[in-house]
Design a protein around this nucleic acid. Structure first.
Lengths: 217, 217
DNA sequence: TAGATTGTTAATCGATTAACAATC
DNA sequence: TAGATTGTTAATCGATTAACAATC
């Protein structure tokens, strides 16, 4: 149950969503790794290998029972439970995340939103009212919240992150373009939108450069 | 210039942002790979290796001239040019992306926003007015736009993506939780927010499970 | 039984790390 | 010159792929 590669974990989420869709369509009871792989864009060997980190879920010569595997993945990933989450930073991105559908389906519930901007405090964001971030620590402690979404400006990120950890937060989904320096046992996922975008621009730019080489040479 | 690992590319963006900050602070003219690595959370060997894919930028015994390396990375990544981008899907996420600062700094300019929802068409999103997606193809062609942000519901994603490609789009930043099936020469970056979040939940859940083992055993 | 498909082992591939000669 | 640091080569590590025995 330890040493699961990060790529495997990410594919597991994809498998889970795929199985959920299959289950909704309700056409087949069983799916094999070959079909799964083709449908989600990987190989059958990869699918079997990924699952093998967690146990045996299939039936040789037959495949995987869709509903069973789905529920197993649900438990493995932890999305069978409900998770309370706080948002810090009620800017454009933060507001979009609160309103984003699809988190609910994964058992995520954003229960509070905080900001330090007096103009934002009190505003509605989805079903929430933005609260003063001074209340942050108390509310996080009282509700025993472990997961936070950090969507504050880069220059505030480190300081806010430390406050979150001091208040009992154990995992941070970080949208600020800053390296957070936190205790090693705090889980951080850096969601760096600029990185994603620039890798696309790089490839686009490569194409164009090699095109012009064609014209010259 | 080919065969650059994706992780290298992503770190290059981090180095670039780091150097920009150093340049703004204007304290040192030169930085060495050791300091760079420590400050951005990797090793000096990794920094040198990453750069070596593109040439020689340093001075043995000295380090890298900050402003020079910055400009080199700018050109390598393609962010020295301005890139026109269209947004398709003016929901919460799409609107947040249009308003997101930080893209501008990377030379990205979102020049049009489209939607098929009559309630959204005509609304302002940042400085843009949302247009009917029926006009999409014509406008993309006319302005010779190569990059699109796809923020439509999952069920529409495949069909919209095909239309974008037919209109001349060469790279898609895909926020829809769908595998796009497109010609191999189209660049797609899947930005899957659910995947990121679930990997955090998995780790959080692991912690909690092993905690309870502690109490039992 | 014959055909299909799993779970796993071994082989391959690719990225990271360590070490060091070159040289400022 | 002595100390520092690059760029690169070789060693290591980790993930993917291929192959196949087990078995439904």
């Amino acid at each position: 149950m330890k040493g699961v590669p990060q790529p495997t974990l990410q594919r597991l989420v994809v498998y889970y969503r795929y199985l959920k869709k299959l289950a909704e369509m309700d056409e087949e009871k069983v799916v094999c790794s070959k079909k799964m792989g083709e449908d989600v864009g990987t190989s059958s060997a990869q699918v079997r290998k990924d699952l093998s980190y967690f146990g045996e879920f299939g039936c040789k010569g037959v495949g995987y029972e869709i509903s069973t595997l789905m529920r197993c993945l649900e438990r493995i990933l932890g999305v069978n439970k409900r998770w309370k989450v706080v948002l810090v930073g009620a800017g454009n991105l933060g507001r979009a995340l609160v309103n984003y559908q699809g988190f609910n389906r994964l058992g995520i519930e954003i229960v509070e939103a905080f900001d330090n901007d007096l103009d934002k405090i009190g505003n509605r964001v989805g079903a929430l009212a933005v609260k003063n971030d001074k209340e942050m620590e108390i509310i996080i402690r009282k509700n025993n919240i472990k997961l936070a979404i950090l969507a504050v400006p880069g220059e505030d990120a480190q300081q806010v992150a430390r406050r979150l950890v001091a208040a009992g937060i154990r995992a941070i989904w970080n949208f600020a373009p800053e390296m957070l320096r936190l205790p090693a046992d705090i889980h951080v996922y850096d969601e760096n939108l600029a990185i994603s975008l620039v890798t696309l621009i790089y490839k686009l730019n490569q194409d164009i450069s090699s095109d012009s080489v064609k014209y010259i040479g």
